[in-house]
Amino acid sequence: MATQPITCPYDVLEGFRFYRGNLVLDNGNTSNPPKYLSMKDLNIEVDKFSRSRVTLKPGAYSLLSQTDIGDQYGYVSFIAVKAIYPSSTLESRKYINWTYQGNTNYMGELMVLSGQRISSSDSEFEGWNLSKPGTLASDSVGNGGIVFHNPSTEITVKLEILVCE
């Protein structure tokens, strides 16, 4: 009978991770790593939520659009995205692009955005608009939705997404 492979319980590399409700700096040598930020008191009231999974093949694009989850203008108050890369991926290759209202930025393994829609000084809205492009009058400001793009020509990236309003 085959035996289960022996795996090391800790990565010996030092780094930040979440542990028991805190962001800690773990060096793998202690069961009580130093805490840098408490997340235990996070408490965000939401009405609706949506959970989805996306597979981004090399070079693929994916539009995150949750018109039915957002408020009457399509805005949501919480977006969390986790990206899962193949285990052999180099750290410098663990990234995808995300484009929101014309601005393109990067994300590695995790992204969390939050905040209620707010009116800015020019009477337009600021926030996270995930309405389907072109479906709401508010789209005159700029199309809603976030476009994720996997720029790699080799690896497939899986996304787990939680959206709340």
Binding site: Y100, V112, G115, I118
Partner: peptide
């Protein structure tokens, strides 16, 4: 952009 109570940004 805006943030409420938490924001996490990552990259490479």
């Amino acid at each position: 952009n805006i943030m409420g109570e938490v924001m996490i940004l990552t990259g490479a």
